Amino acid sequence: MIDLVYLSGGKAGLLGLLVGALLGGAARMGDFCTLAALETAMLGRDYRQLHIWGIALGVAILATALADAAGLIAIGHSIYHAIAWNPLASIGGGLLFGYGMAMAGNCGFGALLRAGSGDIRSVIIVAALGISSYFTLSGPLGPLRDLVFPQQPAAGPGGIANDLAGWTGLPPLGFALAIGAVLIVAGLRHPRVAGSAVTIACAAVVGLSVTLGFVGTALLSEGGLAANTIEGPSFTVPVGRTILYLMTATGMLPSFSVGVVFGTFAGAAMVSVWRHSFRWEACDDPRELGRQLFGAVLMGIGGVIAMGCTIGQGLTGFATLAWSGPVTLAAIAAGAMGGLLQLVRGDLI
């Protein structure tokens, strides 16, 4: 008799591989990068990549809200709503992650994209992030994290749309559609974005990959023995899971999150080869490598505390309109901007 858990795991891994390939390939093709968006806006007054981010986020919110309304998913089954929101964890973890992102020169997702383009430094950053995430999740820092940032089940439905609906009496779906539409329209206001069909399409695919993950994992959850849950792309703890899988998972099939990590790397690599932009790169400055490793460790710790990264909270969590999404994303942006200013001033030790 076929083991249903084993079969479900195989399907979940393939689903993750597909979602990751779409996400990684579209991000690489469409210049979707969180740190680059913040850096070009802050230092160069170029807001093009922020507008791309807005389109991707708007599409993710719209598609996720519609999937929830159609009964394809249940947003309340995601970790962003099933676990009670801890504002201190979102702010503290986000600031730590953002500062580490500036020091490392990329977030975990961005490092995977660069690794797929031949950047060996990014492979080291990804490894350090993954190890530090598990060090914080279930390793020596786990008890301290539980003590300072405890996670409790949510008391009931919450989130931005539900709270606004409760305050006004209007339907939550209307608020979700309005927020998503505003973000898309705002993103399209940049002339260089609006004038590029490829950029718009890539941003849309980035957003849709989140909803595809939600819908796919919901269907697998209903048809298997797994708990009834939905999952989208994230790149903190899943990177640690991928490292564990590579070291210990003999005879086991990858989970959804591990498949996403593999798929993102593969998608970025395929686009880089197709665009003839694949180049082997290494770090010849030990001080720079040390700073990047330090930043990767901070990202791993901060991402676990905040329960997500630029993608895990900033895109996936925000797509469900959980309060943790925008608050964590804002904290990440603030931490990154502080780190970038420090790098520009050159006052790092």
Rank of each mutant, 00 (worst) to 15 (best):
A65C: 09
S196W: 06
G195H: 01
S132M: 11
G223E: 14
L144V: 10
V206Y: 07
N86M: 03
G159F: 04
M29L: 15
A218F: 00
S8C: 05
A36F: 02
M337D: 02
G159C: 11
L188Q: 01
V239R: 07
H190E: 12
V344L: 13
G263I: 07
G110C: 09
I75L: 15
L183T: 01
L137W: 11
S90Q: 07
I311H: 02
W85L: 02
P172D: 09
V59A: 13
G110T: 06
A37K: 05
V123I: 15
G130I: 12
P172A: 09
L66Y: 00
R275E: 15
A331N: 10
L219P: 01
A161H: 06
D146Y: 01
L137A: 09
A37Y: 08
M103V: 00
V260N: 05
A36Y: 04
Y134Q: 15
I179E: 01
D3C: 03
I75M: 15
A249W: 08
T310V: 10
S255G: 12
L22I: 10
V237K: 13
G169S: 07
N86Q: 14
F294D: 04
A203P: 05
P172C: 05
A197Y: 01
A336K: 00
I55T: 08
L66E: 01
A37T: 09
Q313I: 08
T34N: 12
V215P: 02
A21L: 15
G216Y: 02
R45W: 13
E281F: 04
W274D: 10
A63E: 00
G325M: 13
L38W: 09
L7T: 11
A27T: 14
L144W: 12
G302M: 04
I83C: 08
L66P: 01
L137F: 14
G213K: 04
L225E: 11
S8F: 11
T136H: 02
E39I: 04
A336V: 00
V206Q: 05
P254A: 03
S255N: 05
G312R: 00
A269R: 09
